[in-house]
């Protein structure tokens, strides 16, 4: 059985991690186009309070299964060379990266379309829950649109 890669990373996704990931693809010379989505925590103002951080939790077993299903669906729909998904768990401060989706293909159009499909599916189907934390330690629960 193919070993499943884990998607979750504790804390924010560091820009250096993203740079390393790009560098690792330089040996794959059939690739002609990469596309990357980075989700960043926004300092939203909610009823006078500013979001300082989001604390992510997940129904991990189901989330890993959903990520796997979404990966398979994307590979069968689009002619991609490779695909990587990383999502934060735990606390991610405003301005830090919480989602990193990276697709590579021989040509650009496929990469553009596959990336949009992937990000929308992740937002819709993966049981991840974000708690928006304010300066005074109170919080609200985020809901995806």
């Amino acid at each position: 059985m193919k070993k499943r890669k884990t998607v979750f990373i504790e804390g924010p996704i560091k820009p250096s991690f993203i740079a390393n990931s790009i560098e690792k693809h330089q040996i794959k010379t059939s690739i002609g186009a990469h596309d990357i989505f980075l989700g960043q925590v926004r300092a939203d103002e909610i009823e006078g309070n500013i979001v300082q951080a989001i604390e992510y939790s997940a129904y991990k077993d189901m989330a890993e299964e959903k990520f796997h299903e979404i990966r398979e669906a994307t590979f069968s729909k689009y002619d991609l060379t490779c695909m990587h998904i990383y999502h934060s768990l735990g606390k991610v401060k405003a301005g830090e990266i919480c989602l990193f989706v990276f697709v590579s293909a021989p040509h650009r159009r496929v990469a553009f379309e596959a990336l949009e499909f992937l990000v929308e599916e992740i937002k819709k189907d993966v049981p991840v829950f974000g708690k928006e934390i304010f300066e005074d330690e109170t919080h609200v629960w985020k809901v995806n649109n």
Binding site: Y56, C98, K123, G130, W141
Partner: peptide, 12 residues
């Protein structure tokens, strides 16, 4: 069965 109550998702 493994039963889970899931509030609205907010990943990403």
């Amino acid at each position: 069965n493994e039963i889970a109550l899931l509030p609205p998702f907010s990943g990403g």
